[in-house]
C-alpha cells in the first residue's frame, strides 16, 4: 500500500488542503483528465464520455481533521480542534505545527510522579491542553502565529493487512479517485465521469455544497469499524467488505445495481443504514440544485478522527475495482437523468 502511505504523509487539514491538493492535481493531469480547481480548493478531473448524456460525479473529500493555534502562552501553544476530535486522545500526542517552518511538538502530559490523588479520575479538560514545541517563547513567537495549522504527526506504516496513519478519513477515498483516474486514462467510457475531490467536509460538508454540473453522484467516505466501545448496529467488520448506504437520502435503485455488480465480480459488500440526515457530502449532493440520485459507499475504519487511524488495505483496491465495473456496466449508462425513472 505504498501509494496510501505517500498520501498520508501529506497534510490536508480542513481549510488547508493545499499540500495534498497540488499532488492530486498533478496526478489528474498525468492521466490526461480535464482538470479544474475551484476557488475554495475542490479539485476536479473530467473524462468526457462518448454519449454525452449522463454525467457521473464521483466524490471523495480529501481534507482531514486537525487543530489550529488559538493562542501563544509563554513557550506553549493553546489549540482548538478543526473537525470532531475527542480531546481525550490528545495528551501525549505528537503533532506538526505549520508555522514559518514546520515544527515538531507534543501535547503536554503530567508525569505520574506529580499527579495528585484522584486526578486521573477526570479527563484532562480542553482548557488545559498545551502543545510544547521545545522552542523558547521568543523563538516560538518568531515562527508561529495564532491561526497556524497543527496536524497529528504519525509516520504511516503497514502492519498485517492494514495501513495505519493519520487522516485516512478520507484520504483513502482520495486514493480511490486517483486509481479511477488511472483507469480512465486507459479506457473510453459512455458517461462523462467527473472525479471531484472536495475540501472542508469535516467542518460540515462545505466543499460539496458548491455548484457542480452532474446527474448522479457516488460519494466515498469512511465509516466505523466494529471495535471496543461501539454498539453493534452502527459498526462494521472490515472483513465483510465495503458498506453501501441505505436510507432516505440514497437511491435504492442505483445502490442495488452497484450491489449486484460487486457481487458478480466477487467483491464483498455489506449494507449500512443511514436513517436520518447527516452533514456529510452525500446529504449535500442529494439536495443540491434540482436534486440528484446519490450512492454512498464507505470503507469501515478503526479509530476514526484519532491520531492514528487504520484501514484494511484491500478495501481501497476493492472500491476502485467496484467503481470501474460500475462505470462500464451500469444499465443507465448513456441515459439522461430525466429518463432515469423512479428512485
Amino acid at each position: 500500500m505504498e501509494p496510501l502511505q505517500d498520501i498520508l504523509k501529506k497534510t490536508s487539514v480542513s481549510g488547508h488542503e493545499g499540500e495534498l491538493g497540488s499532488f492530486i492535481m498533478e496526478s489528474f493531469k498525468k492521466c490526461r483528465l480535464k482538470t479544474e480547481t475551484s476557488k475554495c480548493g475542490n479539485i476536479i478531473g473530467v473524462k468526457k464520455g462518448s454519449s454525452d448524456k449522463r454525467k457521473v460525479l464521483i466524490d471523495a473529500h480529501y481534507d482531514q481533521v486537525g487543530l489550529i493555534v488559538k493562542k501563544i502562552d509563554g513557550p506553549f501553544l493553546r489549540i482548538k480542534n478543526i473537525g470532531g476530535i475527542d480531546y481525550r486522545v490528545l495528551p501525549g500526542s505528537e503533532v506538526r505545527v505549520y508555522g514559518k517552518k514546520v515544527l515538531r511538538g507534543i501535547f503536554a502530559a503530567k508525569p505520574p510522579h506529580l499527579l495528585r490523588k484522584g486526578e486521573t479520575d477526570k479527563a484532562i479538560s480542553s482548557d488545559d491542553l498545551l502543545v510544547d514545541t521545545g522552542l523558547d517563547e521568543k523563538e516560538l513567537k518568531d515562527n508561529v502565529s495564532p491561526g497556524d495549522i497543527v496536524a497529528y504527526n504519525v509516520e504511516p506504516f503497514t502492519s498485517g493487512k492494514y495501513t495505519f496513519g493519520s487522516g485516512i478519513d478520507n484520504r483513502a477515498g482520495a486514493l480511490v479517485l486517483l486509481k479511477l483516474a488511472e483507469f480512465l486514462r486507459d479506457h473510453e467510457v459512455r458517461d462523462t465521469v467527473v472525479l471531484r475531490t472536495t475540501v472542508m467536509e469535516e467542518t460540515g460538508g462545505r466543499g460539496a455544497a458548491m455548484e457542480e454540473d452532474f446527474d448522479i453522484a457516488v460519494v466515498i467516505d469512511a465509516t466505523f469499524a466494529k471495535q471496543q466501545g461501539t454498539k453493534d448496529d452502527c459498526v462494521f467488520n472490515p472483513d465483510d467488505g465495503i458498506t453501501l448506504s441505505y436510507g432516505p437520502n440514497y437511491s435504492r435503485r442505483l445502490t442495488k445495481e452497484i450491489e449486484e455488480i460487486a457481487k458478480k465480480h466477487g467483491i464483498k459488500t455489506q449494507r449500512e443504514v443511514e436513517e436520518s440526515v447527516r452533514g456529510t457530502n452525500a446529504f449535500r449532493y442529494a439536495v443540491l440544485s434540482g436534486g440528484h440520485e446519490v450512492i454512498g459507499i464507505s470503507y469501515p475504519m478503526y479509530n476514526m478522527h484519532a491520531p492514528c487511524e487504520a484501514v484494511k488495505s484491500s478495501l481501497v483496491d476493492n472500491m476502485a475495482d467496484m467503481l470501474m465495473h460500475f462505470i462500464i456496466e451500469s444499465s443507465d449508462a448513456g441515459r439522461h437523468k430525466t429518463e432515469g425513472g423512479t428512485r
Binding site: 479520575d121 479527563a123 495505519f164 471495535q227 471496543q228 461501539t230 478503526y302 476514526m304
Partner: peptide
C-alpha cells in the same frame, strides 16, 4: 507496529477518561 484503539468521537459518549483495562 500497532495502535492503542479509541472509539470514533462520533460514537463515544461522556467525558470520563478511558480505563486502561478497556
Amino acid at each position: 507496529k500497532g495502535v492503542i484503539m479509541v472509539p470514533p468521537v462520533h460514537l463515544s459518549k461522556g467525558d470520563d477518561p478511558y480505563e486502561a483495562e478497556d
